[in-house]
Design a protein around this nucleic acid. Structure first.
Lengths: 194, 194, 194, 194
DNA sequence: CATGAATGAGTGTTCATTCAT
DNA sequence: TATGAATGAACACTCATTCAT
């Protein structure tokens, strides 16, 4: 009858969570497989049933966090929305992701800022998640609402600053109130609108 | 003796440079003391004459890079300059630092983005280097030229985006031409001006 | 049921063949149970239905290869043959075994040369397979045709050299042609005849 | 003055001896670096000061044992000796090596018989040690004393049998007395003389 | 001051074997 | 019978740091 124990998705998730937590709090260089295993409540050898090796574990965590991020980012978004409204929706979604899903956001920020953390393939894969925002910007540019500049500049001056605010808030240097958020959005929008 | 001090300082600098290079290119987790020593042309044991331990080496590298950064940032700056002119001067200095002193800029970016890389004391120490910019912003706010928002927001939307552009340029996704730079400054300024 | 037994035996044989192949090509230290299982097309756990543990698997493979060897060695042999004729028949059978059943021959050679590979019990068991040759030698000695020396010496100078020739042929250092074989037999015979 | 502790040849030798002993008695697959280190009285990490990795340690042990073997084999030998006398000298030297330097002989035998133990480069390097014997055989063939057959055959029927006798003696199946040795030499010589 | 040798503690990973189904 | 998941113990190897000179 070939019955057998089935690969357990809960363990996979426990491993990803443990990795997320340890990399964020101890740094990549102090997140050994043994600690990850212990925190996930499994044997070190078990990790290798679910992931090829440590790099693969990190890559997969990156990709799944990115996917979770983009689901969050485009919640309630529709390409039918007016450009500014659509942009504000996405921008606020991303801001809330960074405020509420702190661990995931922090991990993604590390991966995106450190060249040696994620391999190039995974990075390219992760980039695809932002496509609807790029499409929206293109529409805004065609409609003469958004400045005709590289999407890298658009990203740098609207989305990327949120990473800094998240980091500062995490370090208790700064609190991102609703008022601050409104000011921040105005700054973001002013930097790219025509 | 003078000769001796100079010779020693050369070793110290060689060690800092080797660390800078290895951490940037291999990542913190593949920059062992033995490689740093080899690249600097000294014995591993010698590192411990100049630095307490690896963390101290990283901290010192951070502080000296920050100092080098702020010297660059405030070159030709004087508090007598008009707010916008002074800001543009500093902003462009920082942009050029990130384009020309890639290794230092990249290292500083890593340190500032990753919580676990340098200790809190060094981070606080490093922050002081930006004081003239903070003073300028305060003056701009008093003069009604710059929006009355948290300096964290001002930083997030004007200076921090440059880190992203540097990273993208380094990954050959994007080239930061003089034209792009002008557009970028406009975006930065628009985001904070009244 | 017959069908079942055959099917089971196929798995057993597949496992023995996989072990033979992997130990010969990768060495004992790179022939893990997981690879053996994969090559045999079964689960690692299944191995333990057919064999007690890895050592038992190796022992059994040794014994069955030895049995296959001796069947080959004494093909067409009858104690009625004249001593020299009988000896030449066996000698040539063994030579052909080593040339044609390379994998089995190679595995047996490893086991016989390395003390730690199979346990003493299996080794003693395996020795029995040569009995007809020992009997023939004894007859030859009684008939005054073969020198009255220890059977270990007889073996060392007639049969054992074939292992070397097989190894050299396998490493492409040397080709064992029919002509070489004739010369080799003459050498073997000259070393023990009176 | 750059004084320093000097690399200690005694440790290197202790490591080689420990390896020799463990591989012979436990087999390659149960001679872990940790045990080797313990037996040599050093830390596991110390091994890597003297050898690149485990394979390098084994290779070096092979080469140095081979060198020690050939020194033994050609003791008192001179190309001026008559062919048979020279051959007997070498043959007996080798026999005594196998009887007296049991551990080295046993290790060399394992390496020569198992394809996966030594890398090809080291094996080729090790082969050079037999050159004087090959030269002697060539001379014997020119003088019409030794049969005109491949040197692989000459080796197979004269030298190689000694490995078998050594193994049997080690397993207490057989004792190689002076009398046996004389008989063995006669067999060896008869197998190749014209 | 400067060194290369030395190391204990740890790294990522593999393995023979067992377990639950 | 047969399985894939699971694992503790081990593996080869590396590291930041110290030691003796």
């Amino acid at each position: 009858m070939m019955a057998k124990r089935i690969k357990n998705n809960e363990k996979r998730i426990a491993l990803l969570n443990a990795t997320l937590h340890l990399v964020n709090n101890n740094g990549f260089h102090d997140a050994p497989m043994s600690k990850i295993a212990k925190m996930a409540g499994v044997s070190p050898a078990t990790i290798y049933i679910y992931f090829e090796n440590k790099q693969d574990l990190i890559n997969k965590l990156y990709l799944e966090s990115k996917a979770s991020f983009s689901e969050y980012a485009f919640k309630d978004y529709s390409p039918n929305l007016a450009v500014k409204n659509g942009f504000e929706l996405i921008w606020r979604n991303i801001a809330h992701f960074k405020l509420n899903q702190v661990e995931e956001a922090n991990f993604l920020s590390q991966c995106d800022n450190i060249n040696t953390m994620i391999d190039e393939t995974s990075r390219q894969e992760g980039l695809k998640n932002l496509q609807p925002l790029l499409d929206l910007w293109e529409r805004g540019q065609k409609e003469g609402i958004i400045k005709n500049i590289s999407s890298y500049l658009l990203y740098a001056f609207t989305i990327y600053p949120l990473a800094f605010l998240m980091t500062m808030q995490q370090r208790n240097n700064f609190e991102l109130t609703e008022e601050n958020l409104a000011e921040a959005f105005t700054s973001a929008w002013n930097s790219i609108k025509i």
